[in-house]
Design a protein around this nucleic acid. Structure first.
Lengths: 237, 237
DNA sequence: CGTCTGGTTGATCTAGATCAACAGGAGTGG
DNA sequence: CCACTCCTGTTGATCTAGATCAACCAGACG
């Protein structure tokens, strides 16, 4: 983890308007800014570990963070990808429970840490903050339930295609020839962990959707050769 | 759905202290009581349907309610069982989104309906109410994520055994001989829908855990013949 | 009675897991 | 510079949990 970085300032943070802090006034922003610690982090580092006491929340300035759940016999699954502008760890902090998941850095990221006391201050001094956390929690819940339902009713293949579309929505762009492209931020192993599958199955899946002309993989580059067909197969859920 | 029932009174509602309304003062309780509509409902009826506009929240006085998620091609899964003392439908109401799931009555239930305006009043007049909803949402989220993770990492058999233990914690008692017993509130089809499996698979599962001496099934009665073995197999998650 | 619905069982099929081998970098150290 | 070792990813062979399809049974109910 890098040294603390003082070049970031909450009051002109580009992602602030998507976070719980969007309603803060000038003074509150100033104390937030004073309290926050900004860190540049690399893949493999963790923000917190499942089971640890919650000590604050983490705002993702840029990069990609994965929430991983470990069960008692060492299996694990990635249950959520969190990107720029999202706050992680709030559930444990606000419910005074240990973290239910670990948060691992998946791509080089810049993350601001806000310790418990400053979060409490903000909650106490600005009722909007609590409302924002409530909205955030409700949204996370509805996403989680829909992921859960999908895992109960759909095959790995369909969930894989769904994931590829989600990644396209988040990270997709058009290359110089106007082809829809994604550069995968995660490796095969992590795709598997997101789907509750094995990496070998992902390899085979990649192979077959490629043979069928749906997507073209080259390392981390994915070309969406027939997005309509993909959309059609997953039923645009 | 039965006629509205005026014998219930919020101020001495036995489940109120587990709900969002536990911090209301006398006056607030009185207006809540005036506004609420109490209904006795039977299996097969629904509280609301996925996709409908949210019009209020439902407090389950007694009984069991299931939240079911339908996907675009008609498949569905039960993603949550909600029992006595829980509030359902708050997420859609508070986020002004349509219901993300349908809520179906699974056993004869008594449910109080609180329409949007009274919920808004309470939220506006008592900051504790918002906090309670936040806590509720955070708890639901963490449960949902742990269910999701379980679905990604565990077999149907293990999840079935886990479900049987959850049902025991909620509904279990000792019979006249001191044997741990549950009377299943749901049928095989619903067990399957909770696990993302087929009813035939549940039948076979029941057969094998029975043959192995873990549980004994007789219709809806389940005898936990070797709870230690069950606990051991699921790793007490 | 017949008809329905919920549940069980049997036979068969298949998506995906598992186990094993191997290929291509990316370091790392001599 | 080469040899060696990780590490990620791919492929092949095989296995299995659970799905699917079909038959059947028992109780409920008009």
């Amino acid at each position: 983890m890098s040294q603390c970085d003082t070049t970031h300032d909450c009051s002109n943070c580009p992602t602030r308007h998507t976070t719980e802090w969007r309603d803060l006034d000038k003074n509150q922003l100033a104390s937030l800014n004073l309290a926050k610690r900004t860190h540049a982090m690399e893949p493999g580092e963790t923000l917190f570990l499942q089971g640890d006491e919650a000590d604050g929340v983490y705002c993702i300035q840029s990069g990609l963070v994965g929430l991983r759940y470990f069960d008692e016999d060492g299996n694990s699954a990635l249950i959520r990808l969190c990107g720029t502008g999202t706050t992680v760890g709030y559930g444990a902090l606000l419910s005074k429970q240990p973290y239910a998941t670990s948060a691992e850095i998946l791509t080089p990221s810049v993350v601001c840490f806000l310790k418990r006391s400053i979060v409490s201050d903000m909650l106490a001094n600005n009722p909007k903050v609590g409302e924002r956390f409530l909205q955030h929690s409700i949204r996370d819940l509805s996403e989680s339930e829909s992921d859960y339902a999908r895992s109960l009713t759909k095959t790995v293949r369909l969930r894989f295609l769904h994931l590829m579309m989600v990644l396209y929505e988040r990270l997709g762009y058009l290359d110089e020839n106007g082809n829809p492209i994604v550069e995968l931020p995660i490796m095969r192993r992590e795709i598997a962990d997101l789907l509750g599958a094995q990496p070998e199955s992902i390899s085979r899946l990649i192979r077959s959707v490629q043979d069928e002309g749906l997507l073209k993989f080259d390392g981390k580059m994915v070309l969406y050769s027939d997005m309509d067909k993909v959309q059609h197969e997953i039923g645009t859920s």
